[in-house]
Amino acid sequence: MNRKTRLATALVAGGVLTVGAVTVTAPAIAGAGPFGRPTASTSWFGTGQGTAGNGMGTAAGNGMGSALRDGSCLSPSASVPSGTLSEQQKTTLASMAQEEKLAGDLYRAFADTYPAVVFDRIAAAEDQHLEAVRTLLARYGIGDPTADRPAGQFSDPAVQATYDRLLAEGSASQSAAFGVGQQVEQADIASLQQALTGLDAADVAQVYRHLLAASQHHLTAFTTWATR
């Protein structure tokens, strides 16, 4: 069964066909997260949701219930005003696009390899998240570092190295791939929390908060699947 057929079958079985009801990852900021030096709470460069019956329902079933219901309103609302970003905050926003692409490309690669539908769903979420970030990049006149880059290819050598390492790690087994998902989401949460500190631009803060909540749901989903 190919990936699209597997996903459709699982969604029909779980009765969840809502459009855009998926989740998020987060940005990497300079000096932390996957593209900078690791902190005590992140180890990027270290060594390295239906019913319980059908695997797609409530969070109590497998950690995907909440994840399937957030992420549908990620794009900044037109009613939320733009603000002013420092050069560091602009760098953070651009690196967020790289992080969304990295996560999406990883999860899609794992979805093509393993039968766990969690990879399909969260990979689809990353597409929405990247578009939300791109909306902000355009609004603030910041170049998109992911533009015209095929899956698994990145303009930044450090990002490329991180992707290659995590892909190799997750290719060892499905269990290892769940572990990679947990690493990504844990680092995302730490990065987003730091990115929100001192941020005055309301539209960017709105998106970051959505990404943070969704990344927490993703972590729950991967953790639950890893312990099944």
Results as ranks from 00 to 15, higher is better:
residue 1 M to E: 12
residue 2 N to L: 04
residue 4 K to N: 12
residue 5 T to L: 11
residue 9 T to C: 02
residue 12 V to I: 11
residue 14 G to M: 06
residue 14 G to C: 14
residue 15 G to D: 11
residue 26 A to W: 03
residue 27 P to E: 13
residue 28 A to S: 15
residue 30 A to I: 12
residue 31 G to R: 09
residue 34 P to N: 14
residue 34 P to M: 14
residue 37 R to F: 07
residue 38 P to H: 09
residue 40 A to C: 06
residue 43 S to A: 15
residue 43 S to F: 10
residue 48 G to R: 12
residue 53 G to E: 14
residue 55 G to R: 10
residue 62 N to E: 05
residue 65 G to N: 08
residue 66 S to G: 13
residue 67 A to L: 14
residue 73 C to M: 05
residue 76 P to W: 05
residue 76 P to M: 04
residue 80 V to H: 03
residue 86 S to K: 05
residue 96 M to C: 08
residue 96 M to A: 15
residue 100 E to F: 01
residue 104 G to S: 07
residue 111 A to C: 08
residue 119 F to L: 13
residue 127 D to F: 07
residue 132 A to D: 13
residue 132 A to C: 13
residue 138 A to D: 14
residue 139 R to W: 00
residue 142 I to W: 09
residue 142 I to G: 09
residue 142 I to E: 08
residue 149 R to N: 07
residue 150 P to L: 02
residue 153 Q to R: 14
residue 157 P to I: 08
residue 158 A to S: 06
residue 158 A to W: 00
residue 159 V to L: 00
residue 160 Q to F: 00
residue 161 A to F: 04
residue 168 A to Y: 02
residue 169 E to H: 10
residue 169 E to Q: 15
residue 170 G to Q: 04
residue 174 Q to M: 13
residue 174 Q to L: 10
residue 180 V to M: 04
residue 181 G to N: 07
residue 182 Q to P: 02
residue 187 A to T: 15
residue 188 D to I: 05
residue 190 A to V: 15
residue 194 Q to T: 15
residue 197 T to P: 00
residue 202 A to L: 03
residue 206 Q to A: 11
residue 206 Q to E: 09
residue 209 R to H: 09
residue 210 H to W: 11
residue 210 H to T: 05
residue 216 Q to T: 14
residue 222 F to E: 08
residue 228 R to I: 09
